[in-house]
Design a protein around this nucleic acid. Structure first.
Lengths: 189, 189
DNA sequence: CTAAACTTTCAGAAAATACTGAAACTTCAA
DNA sequence: TTGAAGTTTCAGTATTTTCTGAAAGTTTAG
């Protein structure tokens, strides 16, 4: 795979950003390379394109697999593994967010949960306990919301995002229509 | 500030998570300490509580300021600076997300933007260009949505999150009611 | 102005993280 | 069963990031 300068810049950029996105430079570069390539690449292709060691490529492939961002393709009659991005940009983004939630939110949530459980009767200062509860509740809210969003159809989710804060307006309206009742009450046109 | 074991564990946890959240261990620990403390703390208090050097505390305070996560309080007749968390848990979270967006999304968006601008007539492979466009559009959508959300009243935003994917249902309904018209059309009960 | 009280800076040390390349391992065609 | 083709592992090295502590800087009471 021969890279033109623009493409190479973009790949280097993804490498730089990698660490901010939760993985390392090599993983970032390889993800970019595979996303921008229109055909699956072998580990040797990748090592050559990015001028990195074969071992490093192997590690990074493992990491990318563990994030479910790539998949392996095998040609019949060829022993080599070929790798490609595991879905559309939208799907890859979802995957990254999902994985980052697991690493950045879930551990703290479970720590807070057990702490708030265990310490019913102990000597935690009042304000600290209260703050922990707030963080806990916020993370829990976020988690449920995030789960819900992930299960929406992409086109609905996209429409919703495009609507932006407009959604607030719409909901206020419907709220005024049905101050405490079930959705069905809306459909009476 | 004397810390009981539970609190100390939580602070250590925030330190560990720090790097995943976009800052370093010391910054994470200090943020936790100030969030859980019910009174402002001096730099020396912090250094002592966390057993870290005074210089490190100074660096981390600068970082926390730059994220707008803390503010400085001065007692009249006391030369020391005292530091405290800059708002509620909700406000702090918003601040963290805002800052992370700046660091994790904006640079890539502007890189993509200039790349897609500049390369109208150049030799970028078609598939690569297309993928860049997709990433660009997704990040732009995300950015607008995020901005919009940040300008919503917290209680509205929270209500919206609690609604989760239920919002999709509600919107489908209203859509059926007013297939292309202005909001006012809803109010006709 | 002076100097005590306090804060920041920054060069070098320490710690954490990432990368290389050679050896070990696996797979499969013959 | 063998060995060529391919992949993974991991000890050692390189790089990056973070932390320390002493020196430089700042502020203010007297």
């Amino acid at each position: 795979m021969k890279l033109n300068t623009e493409l190479e810049n973009m790949i280097l950029h993804f490498g730089e950003m990698g660490s901010r996105w939760g993985f390392n430079r090599t993983v970032g570069q390889m993800l970019a390379l595979l996303v921008f390539s229109d055909e699956p690449l072998s580990a040797d292709d990748i090592a050559a394109s990015l001028s990195i060691s074969r071992g490093n490529v192997s590690m990074a492939l493992k990491e990318l697999h563990s994030w479910r961002l790539i998949r392996t393709h095998r040609e019949p009659g060829d022993r080599k593994d070929y790798f490609l991005a595991n879905g559309t940009i939208w799907e890859l983004s979802q995957q990254v967010l999902e994985e980052r939630k697991k690493r950045e939110v879930d551990p703290t949530l479970s720590m807070l949960r057990s702490q708030l459980m265990a310490s019913e009767q102990d000597a935690m200062p009042h304000h600290a306990r209260q703050q922990m509860q707030e963080i806990h509740d916020l993370l829990e809210l976020f988690n449920h919301w995030f789960d819900d969003m992930q299960h929406m159809k992409p086109e609905h989710l996209q429409a919703l995002m495009r609507l932006g804060s407009g959604v607030g307006k719409v909901l206020e309206m419907t709220d005024r229509l049905r101050p405490k009742t079930k959705k069905k009450a809306i459909g009476n046109d």
